[in-house]
């Protein structure tokens, strides 16, 4: 998927679809905290990063990945990386 041409809402929906398809996570609020609210463990967050990278054809640095703690934050980060 080409992030550059995606609207923000479209990108967030695509992120949620990755979370639903791979980890069975549904009804995720845009600002829900992956750790505190969704209780996603660290291995699953690493796996989510891998799936998102594959889905959107990007590579996220480990330092940046630590900030992927909500759908909002993830969408912003992906937009930034895609330029």
């Amino acid at each position: 998927m080409d992030i550059k041409n995606m609207q923000e809402a479209e990108l967030k929906a695509a992120i949620k679809k990755v979370m639903q398809d791979n980890f069975g996570l549904s009804d995720i609020a845009d600002d829900a905290d992956f750790i505190k609210d969704l209780k996603i463990d660290s291995i699953t967050r690493m796996e989510l990063l891998l799936k998102l990278e594959d889905e959107f054809g990007v590579r996220v640095e480990d330092n940046d990945a630590q900030n992927m703690l909500s759908v909002d934050a993830t969408a912003q980060l992906l937009k930034k990386i895609a330029g």
């Binding site: 291995i43 690493m46 891998l50």
Partner: peptide, 9 residues
């Protein structure tokens, strides 16, 4: 670097 984090466990 595309190996699943779930692979080992």
């Amino acid at each position: 670097n595309r190996v699943s984090a779930f692979y080992v466990p």
